[in-house]
Design a protein around this nucleic acid. Structure first.
Length: 719
DNA sequence: AAGCAGCCAATTTTT
DNA sequence: TTGGCTGCTT
């Protein structure tokens, strides 16, 4: 097709490969989009292209992302490119779209129109409650593990009745899964994975419905395809049928979510299943200086199983990567803050600087250093707005009123704020409900009337809910929440609480959130509107509420940094055991995934990259000695500038257990020194025992664990 | 029924 | 070290 490129604004400045992807004529495509290669731009321009050329109408395409943020971003960009109304277009997250589908077809899905969504917390408490009623031993079957398995099965598209147990343990889990399915069905709630699975099953089992949607969506576009699960891929295949076009964008090197069901293999399967001959590779990077890219390329080239690509840039080499070896985690944090202060003085905004770490526990020391230096900062991760206990409490009142079978919601609030309903009366209530096979609400409602004037007990609770229900009838959601905050006693409870101020302001913020929601809603029906709002609070974590516009230093895990970019990036804690993380080693392909994580981290940086590590750090209340991350060795030396030479701590300044130095013994290496052993490889000195000729040295090896070696015989060399 | 001391475990996370 | 949970005391 001959294209007048210059006439269409959104095609201008696309590079050759991007242009090829955007204007692809027919057939399905897999776009291998490296970090910073303009992935989102290609995806949105593709949509604009399809609509602009009338290849498909806005209603005939479906675009899926993983996060609400990505979906919003996509909609914003399309709106900027085309004069169309994006409302009503099927652009959203997997969960958001499936939710929409299930609301439309709730009868086929065998769900109440007002079904509620359980977030992971809710799901866990539902599972715990179920397991207690089944008398399952929680030591043998930790609820978290059961939850993990149930979600795992669902992500694979498996129902309890089709799973074959392989031992007694798995048999029990499948049994719990089966009961859990029943319980959710009875209570009219669905968890996140259920949204997808139920949607998939409805389509699969209703040929007419499937046909309708297959006819409708001739173009399916998928973002972050490397993160799709087995079920998500099956869903896409089902909708695609044998003639619709799939346009998938992803990067196998940035697949870092296999622990939650992501299956990189979907990329190869897509090529095969959709007969894609040529993968379009976007390899020009518009983000990072070449030194940074070269380091990233070098690191990732150590992975075996790749589709293969090599990023390049014409942005110049830039500064060398800086490496700092700290003595302690505190020293590491102080170094970072000193550098940050200097960068800020030279004109860089705090918000353009990110400090990345592998696990959340590492942020504490850094935060401490930041606070004592009075630098504004923001930590990502942790509890989101709608996940906060007080917010969930207020919402639970609303949920119970909207769906009386929601036992989860009832249990959350029946005795919060405390109104004298303890475990005894609760147990009784649950037994009664089970006996009559009714919801907890019905059981509570059937109990005798509130005779006393005491603001206590189950009858009082029932009365309270009914009063609130009456009172909010016909009111807006915001007004309703306002009344709930007051009547439930939540506000009062937190007023008496010594650090309840934040919680009270969150309850008030929830009212504002409802106002904002109402302003953007198109639905007039009040009760459906309430359901929509409750969905919104489950599907949308509430990042919007938490953001402030202050210029702040950015702290986050490497995982949460994916998709973001910063002028300057500090990757911290680059030690074996932390990054790569010790626990990942026992997972299949664990090391490769950790390496991808490192790759993601490095490619976040635009101009400056710092790599920091420490010889010792406090973790789980104990001092640990780690050796430098093996990933550091994978970066070509000429790209890196060492900012210091490692200084060793005095062996005596760090007393460790079982180690009592004596005056007549000499210790050849200080604790924390890196050594090499011909058989065990690299390790770090962690202790000594014995004296003189019986002196034994304790070494922690990266691949062989902790060993005690007789110093006289062990062939150790310092590295 | 509620509050507190003691025990245990401890990546990564969006929806 | 921290947080979450259990079980004991008040």
């Amino acid at each position: 097709m001959q294209i007048a490129r210059h006439q269409i604004s959104f095609l201008q400045d696309l590079n050759e490969k991007q242009f090829e992807a955007v204007t692809l004529d027919s057939g399905s495509a897999l776009v291998l989009a490296g970090a910073g290669s303009g992935k989102t731009r290609v995806l949105t321009s593709r949509i604009s292209w399809l609509i602009h050329n009338q290849i498909v109408g806005p209603g005939g395409l479906l675009a899926v992302t993983f996060t609400n943020k990505a979906a919003r971003e996509m909609i914003t960009r399309i709106t900027a490119q085309l004069p169309i109304n994006t409302r009503g277009m099927w652009i959203g997250t997997f969960h958001g779209l499936c939710n929409r589908f299930l609301r439309l077809h709730h009868i086929d899905a065998n769900l109440p129109e007002t079904f509620q969504i359980l977030d992971s917390q809710d799901q866990l408490s539902a599972i715990k409650r179920l397991m207690r009623s089944m008398n399952v031993d929680e030591d043998n079957f930790p609820p978290r593990e059961v939850q993990y398995h149930i979600n795992g099965y669902k992500e694979e598209g498996l129902r309890s009745k089709v799973i074959k147990p392989y031992d007694n343990h798995s048999k029990k889990i499948i049994e719990i899964y089966a009961e859990y399915e029943k319980q959710c069905q009875k209570e009219g709630v669905v968890d996140f994975a259920e949204l997808l699975l139920r949607c998939y099953e409805v389509l699969r089992d209703n040929p007419q419905l499937l046909h309708h949607y297959q006819e409708r969506f001739s173009h399916l576009l998928i973002d972050e395809f490397q993160d799709t699960s087995e079920l998500q891929y099956k869903w896409i295949k089902l909708l695609a049928g044998d003639k619709n076009q799939v346009f998938a964008v992803g990067d196998d090197d940035q697949s870092i979510y296999s622990f939650r069901g992501a299956r990189v293999g979907n990329m190869k399967d897509l090529q095969k299943d959709f007969k894609i001959k040529d993968v379009i590779k976007l390899e020009q990077n518009y983000r990072s200086k070449n030194n940074i890219l070269n380091a990233a390329n070098a690191i990732i080239s150590n992975n075996e199983d790749r589709l293969g690509k090599n990023l390049w840039t014409d942005l110049g080499h830039g500064d060398p990567i800086r490496q700092y070896v700290a003595i302690s985690d505190l020293d590491e944090a102080n170094f970072i803050i000193d550098e940050v202060k200097q960068l800020h003085r030279s004109g860089l905004n705090y918000s353009q600087i990110a400090i990345l770490y592998r696990s959340n526990a590492q942020s504490r020391v850094i935060e401490h250093a930041i606070v004592s230096n009075n630098i504004p900062y923001r930590v990502y991760g942790g509890l989101r707005f709608f996940e906060r206990a007080e917010v969930k409490h207020a919402l639970a009142y609303l949920r119970l009123i909207s769906n009386k079978s929601d036992d989860n919601a009832l249990l959350r609030i029946i005795n919060f704020p405390a109104r004298g309903i303890g475990s005894k009366s609760l147990e009784k209530l649950q037994d009664e409900a089970k006996l009559k096979n009714v919801s907890l609400w019905e059981a509570a409602n059937a109990s005798p009337q509130n005779t006393s004037n005491l603001k206590k007990g189950i009858p009082y609770f029932v009365e309270l809910i009914k009063t609130i229900e009456d009172e909010i009838h016909g009111l807006t959601i915001a007004e309703s929440i306002d009344i709930i905050n007051e009547r439930s006693g939540l506000l009062q409870h937190y007023q008496n609480d010594k650090d309840g101020l934040d919680r009270i302001s969150n309850l008030q913020e929830l009212v504002s959130a409802a106002v904002t929601f109402a302003d953007s809603s198109e639905i007039d029906n009040a009760s459906l509107n309430l359901v929509e709002f409750l969905n919104y609070t489950s599907l949308e974590s509430g990042e919007l509420q938490a953001s402030s516009d202050q210029d702040a230093l950015q702290l986050m895990t490497i995982h949460s940094a994916k998709g973001l970019e910063f002028e300057t990036v500090f990757i911290t804690g680059l030690e074996d055991g932390l990054c790569p993380h010790e626990q990942s080693m026992s997972e299949p392909n664990g090391l490769e995934e950790e390496r991808r994580l490192m790759y993601v981290a490095v490619t976040r940086a635009k101009i400056k990259l710092y790599l920091t590590l420490s010889q010792s750090r406090m973790l789980h209340g104990q001092t640990q000695y780690n050796i430098p991350s093996r990933f550091l060795d994978e970066i070509p030396e000429e790209l890196v500038k060492a900012l210091n030479t490692a200084k060793r701590q005095d062996v005596l300044t760090q007393p460790i257990r079982n180690f009592m130095p004596t005056s007549n013994t000499s210790y050849p290496w200080k604790i924390g020194t890196n050594l090499n052993h011909p058989k065990f490889g690299n390790g770090v000195v962690t202790g000594y025992e014995g004296e003189q000729h019986d002196l034994r040295i304790q070494v922690k090896f990266s691949s062989h664990g902790i060993k005690w070696l007789a110093l006289e015989y062990a062939k150790l060399t310092e590295i």
